[in-house]
Computed example of a mutant assay.
Amino acid sequence: MTKTLLFLSMFSSILAFSQEDLLKDIDTLKTTENSPPAFKALQIVTGQSTKLTAKKEWYIVVAHRFGDISTGFKNFFGLDDASTKLGVIYGVTDGLSLSLSRETNMKTFEFGAKYKLLKQNENFPVEVVGYNVMAANTDLDKDNYPHLQFGDRLSYLTQALISRRFSDDFSLQLSPSYVHKNLYDQNIENNNQFLAGLGGRYKISKRISINAEYFVNFDNHSFYKNPLSLGMDIETGGHVFQLLFSNSQLNSDIGYLTNATGKWEKGQIFFGFNLYRVF
Rank of each mutant, 00 (worst) to 15 (best):
L5S: 05
L5D: 05
L8V: 09
M10L: 15
S13M: 10
A16Q: 14
E20Y: 09
E20P: 06
L22Q: 13
D25T: 13
L29P: 05
L29A: 08
K30T: 12
T32E: 06
P37L: 05
Q43D: 13
V45E: 03
V45F: 00
G47Y: 00
K51P: 03
L52R: 07
T53E: 15
E57D: 13
I60M: 15
V61M: 15
V62M: 13
A63V: 10
H64C: 12
R65C: 07
T71L: 07
K74S: 14
K74T: 14
F76A: 14
S83L: 03
V88I: 14
Y90S: 11
T93Y: 05
L96D: 09
L96Y: 07
S97M: 15
S99T: 08
L100N: 12
T104V: 03
T104A: 04
N105K: 14
N105H: 10
K107D: 11
T108K: 00
F109G: 01
F111G: 09
L117C: 07
K119F: 01
K119M: 06
K119L: 09
Q120A: 06
E122Q: 12
P125V: 04
V126T: 07
V129G: 01
G130A: 08
Y131F: 14
Y131A: 06
N132A: 12
A136Y: 02
N137I: 00
T138D: 08
D141Q: 08
P146A: 11
L148F: 02
F150Y: 14
F150A: 10
Q159Y: 01
A160L: 09
I162E: 02
D168T: 06
F170C: 06
S171H: 05
L174R: 01
S175K: 05
S177K: 00
Y178C: 00
V179R: 01
V179N: 02
H180M: 01
Y184D: 02
Q186Y: 15
N187F: 06
N191A: 12
Q193Y: 06
Q193D: 11
F194D: 08
F194G: 12
G197Q: 04
G197R: 02
G200K: 04
S205G: 14
K206G: 14
N211T: 14
Y214M: 03
Y214E: 03
H221W: 08
H221D: 11
H221V: 07
F223R: 13
F223C: 03
K225T: 10
L230V: 11
G231N: 06
M232A: 12
I234V: 14
E235D: 12
E235C: 10
E235K: 15
T236R: 06
G238F: 06
F241S: 11
F241P: 04
F241H: 09
S246E: 02
S248N: 08
G255C: 03
T258A: 10
T258H: 02
A260Y: 03
K266D: 15
G267Y: 03
N274W: 02
